[in-house]
Write a protein that binds this DNA or RNA. Sequence first.
RNA 1: GGUCCCAUCGUCUAACGGUUAGGACACCAGGUUUUCAUCCUGGCAAUUCGGGUUCGAUUCCCGGUGGGAUCACCA
Length: 492
Amino acid sequence: MAEIRTRIAPSPTGFAHVGTLRSALFNFLFARKNHGKFVLRVEDTDQNRLVEGALEDVVKVLHDFKLDPDEGFVWDNGVKEQGPYAPYLQSKRLPIYKKYAEELIEKNHAYYCFCTPQRLEDLRKSQEAQKLPPKYDKLCLSLSKEEVQQKLANNEPHVIRLNVPADQTIRFTDLIHGEISISTNDIDDQVLLKSDGFPTYHLAVVVDDYLMNINYVLRGDEWLPSTPKHILLYSAFGWPSPQYAHLPLLLSKSKKKLSKREGDVAVKDFLAQGYLPEALLNFVALLGWNPKTEQEIFTLDELIEQFSLDKVNKSGAVFDLEKLDWINGLYIRKLSLEELFARISEYLSEAKTAPREFVLKILGLEQGRLKKLSEIGDRVRYFFHEPEYDPALLVWKKGSAETAKQNLIMLSSVLSNFDKSEFIKDNLELKIKNLITEKDLTNGEVLWPLRVALSGLEASPSPFEIMDAFSALPGGKEIILKRLQNAINSLA
RNA sequence: GGUCCCAUCGUCUAACGGUUAGGACACCAGGUUUUCAUCCUGGCAAUUCGGGUUCGAUUCCCGGUGGGAUCACCA
């Protein structure tokens, strides 16, 4: 059996989006699972829509998500091509497409078309007015050989169109959808080579997939309607078609295809918000695929092990941010403190200047509470800046301002006698809770004001944890006492 | 509009033609807790409709309805 070869073929017309990531993942998984090759080819045939940096972004995303291609563009602190079928950049393959387009003309499977954009537009308008599907009317097919030669000699602008035969039925088996058939009467004479000499997607994808020995094409469902054109092309060339598997679309909340207009799509934006690559990957893996078990959390190796096309669904999947948040929180909790530190520094400017031990303690407190790394700054601001809050917040819901004040005074006096080495969470908890018992107080009336005095927040880690963290900071004890004093004063 | 695709809780999904239609997220309630988060328990919530086939349809077939994709010298 021939080696299985899949590819991801993004168009560098914008930053990599999650649909591309999901497509890349499935192609990658299928290739790895079957000991095949995963190829990255870049479809930059639309000169007008090229976006600066888009190629680099796709390559970087694949690398960040550990989906490095076996051939095509590799990440090397830059971008370079690598592999036996180079170039993998379609704009560097122009002569190839020209040659194959002309071959089709010789075989009468394609023809030159000199129609002006104006005529095409008029044609389309009149067809729409008659409620007919817009389709080229094959006018230029009736040109004589001499007329064509004359026009070419005159350098008249022209394209090359596929000559779609009438009254045939194109049938193929999609690995996900099953048997699909479409009449050639519904297929337009697609432009193959544009007037600027660049191929359209349809020509380029077929020629390159063939030349690069791609035998499994896993791509989004939006390509299903144009697959017959591609099959027609393979057949016109006399080449065997690859196996097709059309993946269910990723949908926005309103169930439309996920796009720039519909929902958030750029992978880099998700990363910027502090979604971990492994969490995002785990999440998109489950969109349209599932292992038929109840497992939901996977390593890449587990995905490779368990992936198969017959577990891919047919219907589109809504990109549900709430579930992504849950998965991301899970992955954040699985990180070691050192890993979390390394990943979070860009979201926490103080991480670079504050004592490492102090920051690690803080991260330890917040690790279980974060859904996205970007939330960290707001959550721990009180560790670096004196909190501002309404003094009324110091009063426990079942307590009074007076008891809050008395308890804070008591705590302040006790804590001021503590040795620095005593500011350890377990010790603080033991001592203070004993104190509460001795004095016949309740946890709430003591711990709530203490916690608010320290954090200024309605919700935060426990006061023992906060003080423990401060103890990792030179002068931490003084900060604690100062905050207690501020609280006492504010209650006066 | 033509063509094609699709259809189980709000969302992601599971269920050889026989299950009290299962799990997860979200949500709600309770437990733990000074608060929040975590964690544990419980709850709410679905087979689009109509015909067949069958002893029996979520499951197979047909039709309706609904949703989506696509119809460029964009991919």
